[in-house]
Amino acid sequence: MAGYEEEEVKLFGAWGSPFSSRVEIALKMKGVKYQLIEEDTGNKSPLLLKYNPVHKKIPVLLHNGKPIAESIVIIEYIDDTWKSGTPILPQHPHQRAMARFWAKYIDDKLVPMWKSIRSTGEEQEQATKETEEALRTLENELQGKKFFGGETIGLADIIANFLGLWFGILEEVCEIKVLTQDKYPRIHQWINEYVESSVMKTSLPKRSELLSLFQTYFKPTK
Score class of each variant (00 low, 15 high):
residue 144 G to V: 08
residue 172 E to F: 13
residue 164 G to T: 03
residue 184 Y to E: 09
residue 142 L to D: 02
residue 109 K to W: 11
residue 99 A to N: 06
residue 100 R to C: 10
residue 91 Q to L: 12
residue 139 E to C: 04
residue 102 W to N: 04
residue 171 E to M: 06
residue 119 S to V: 09
residue 84 S to G: 13
residue 171 E to A: 08
residue 153 I to V: 05
residue 97 A to D: 02
residue 106 I to H: 08
residue 135 L to E: 03
residue 96 R to I: 00
residue 134 A to K: 01
residue 122 E to V: 04
residue 111 V to A: 11
residue 130 E to H: 13
residue 136 R to W: 13
residue 175 E to H: 07
residue 163 L to W: 01
residue 113 M to S: 14
residue 116 S to V: 13
residue 118 R to M: 12
residue 129 K to P: 08
residue 84 S to F: 12
residue 191 I to R: 15
residue 185 P to F: 02
residue 120 T to Y: 14
residue 113 M to V: 14
residue 181 Q to R: 15
residue 138 L to N: 05
residue 127 A to S: 14
residue 131 T to H: 13
residue 113 M to F: 14
residue 102 W to F: 08
residue 159 I to C: 08
residue 98 M to A: 12
residue 108 D to P: 09
residue 194 Y to T: 00
residue 116 S to P: 14
residue 178 V to S: 02
residue 113 M to R: 15
residue 163 L to S: 03
residue 188 H to V: 11
residue 125 E to H: 10
residue 194 Y to G: 01
residue 183 K to V: 02
residue 151 E to L: 10
residue 90 P to A: 02
residue 162 F to G: 04
residue 195 V to S: 03
residue 181 Q to E: 15
residue 156 A to P: 05
residue 159 I to F: 03
residue 167 F to Y: 15
residue 90 P to F: 08
residue 103 A to G: 11
residue 121 G to Q: 01
residue 85 G to V: 02
residue 189 Q to H: 10
residue 123 E to Y: 12
residue 186 R to F: 05
residue 192 N to Y: 13
residue 176 I to W: 07
residue 122 E to D: 12
residue 183 K to C: 11
residue 87 P to E: 07
residue 168 G to T: 14
residue 95 Q to M: 03
residue 108 D to V: 05
residue 194 Y to L: 03
residue 180 T to R: 15
residue 148 F to P: 02
residue 118 R to I: 05
residue 127 A to M: 11
residue 197 S to K: 05
residue 121 G to M: 06
residue 100 R to G: 00
residue 116 S to R: 13
residue 90 P to S: 01
residue 120 T to H: 13
residue 89 L to V: 00
residue 169 I to Y: 07
residue 98 M to T: 12
residue 175 E to V: 11
residue 186 R to W: 00
residue 111 V to P: 00
residue 89 L to D: 04
residue 169 I to C: 10
residue 123 E to N: 07
residue 109 K to Q: 13
residue 178 V to W: 05
residue 145 K to N: 05
residue 107 D to K: 00
